[in-house]
Amino acid sequence: MQSQTERPDAVIDAPKGNWVDRYAPPRTRPWLRMSRADRPIGTWLLLLPCWWGIGLAMMADAPRWFDLWIALACAIGAFVMRGAGCTWNDITDRDIDAQVARTRSRPLPSGQVSLRGAYVWLAAQGLLGLVILLTLGKAAVWMGVASLALVAIYPFAKRFTWWPQIFLGLAFNWGVMLAYAAHMGRVDVAPVVAWLGAIAWTIFYDTIYAHQDAEDDAIIGVKSTARLFGDNSPRILAGFAILAVVVLGVATALPGRNLLIAWAGLAGFAAHLAWQLKKFEPDQGDVCLRLFRSNRDAGLILALFLAVAGLA
């Protein structure tokens, strides 16, 4: 079997041996790669706040059978809408991506997908996401509609602010309120506070990720917190890690039930962030990528304990 690095259509920074490169029919690969199906970490990071929201809702109310569908619908929706968001990002960044070593092999800048095809693919994923959203109730539908502006703005943020990671956090963590609303039929203070804490977490992990491109970004004039923080990144990221833990601690306390279980999960989450900071090397791209991907485990720890707290 031909290795990933030998394939002319391969994406440089996709995990080696990913299922798209190994098993997907050749004609589908460019579309799946545009949706980042070959790198599931983004889907996880979009999904995990949704599962946090379900846990918070169960802590505030009680578990329901419908929560199983909410969890599954969020998983499917995260995959689809993350794909749509990445497609939109590739459309808006196609000229920038062509100038960056890590991204020039993506389907659009490499010519594997046409601009018109990308728009059609974006619409198809958006429609599928809408169908799933409509099953979650009126409150969740309105929350989903409200998120569209954030999704649309994010790809442009790095052009006008040094803090594009904030815009990513605003959009990526919206699911904690959407999933809560799907269960409760409304949005309370707890998921809003959790959303704010999750934004601090996003700044933490996406700054680590952005350090891979810091040199290329400086050449082409793209802004990021990695460039803004520079050599001070470890110290500043420690502050955002603490902020995320503290604010999420407040959010888990608001439902007022099974707090010790929830905080045990938060302790595990905090320990994982501390481990990342210990291993963090800003000038080592492979280390940054590995640590970024490890945030799936950090988020799963908290999601598991919130689920137990909600079910107990």
Rank of each mutant, 00 (worst) to 15 (best):
Leu47Pro: 06
Val246Pro: 06
Ile70Pro: 07
Ile132Asn: 03
Gly310Asn: 01
Pro40Cys: 08
Ala149Gly: 13
Gln165Ala: 07
Ile301Val: 15
Ala78Leu: 02
Thr161Asp: 12
Val287Gln: 14
Ala214Gln: 14
Leu72Gly: 03
Ile54Ser: 05
Lys158Arg: 11
Leu277His: 02
Ala37Trp: 14
Asp231His: 09
Ala152Ile: 09
Phe66Asn: 13
Ile70Glu: 11
Trp88Lys: 06
Cys74Trp: 15
Ala101Thr: 07
Ser147Cys: 09
Lys223Val: 05
Trp142Phe: 14
Leu260Thr: 10
Gly197Arg: 05
Arg235Met: 10
Gly239Arg: 03
Arg82Tyr: 07
Phe292Gly: 08
Ser294Tyr: 00
Asp61Gln: 00
Ile242Met: 09
Ile96Cys: 03
Ala198Trp: 14
Ala200Trp: 00
Val247Pro: 12
Gly83Val: 03
Leu259Arg: 13
Trp162Lys: 12
Leu304Tyr: 03
Phe204Gly: 02
Leu300Thr: 08
Leu148Val: 14
Pro234Gly: 07
Arg257Trp: 09
Arg22Gly: 06
Ile96Leu: 13
Ile153Gly: 06
Phe292Ser: 06
Ala307Leu: 15
Ile301Phe: 09
Asp93Ser: 00
Phe240Gly: 06
Ser114Ala: 07
Ala270Ile: 04
Gln276Leu: 04
Gln125Gly: 15
Val246Phe: 10
Phe229Asp: 01
Gln212Asn: 08
Val176Gln: 06
Asp9Pro: 09
Ser114Arg: 03
Lys279Ile: 06
Ala271His: 00
Val192Thr: 13
Gly42Ser: 06
Leu128Asn: 11
Arg159Pro: 12
Val113His: 03
Trp201Asp: 01
Val187Lys: 06
Arg64Lys: 12
Gly42Ile: 07
Leu127Asp: 02
Arg296Ala: 04
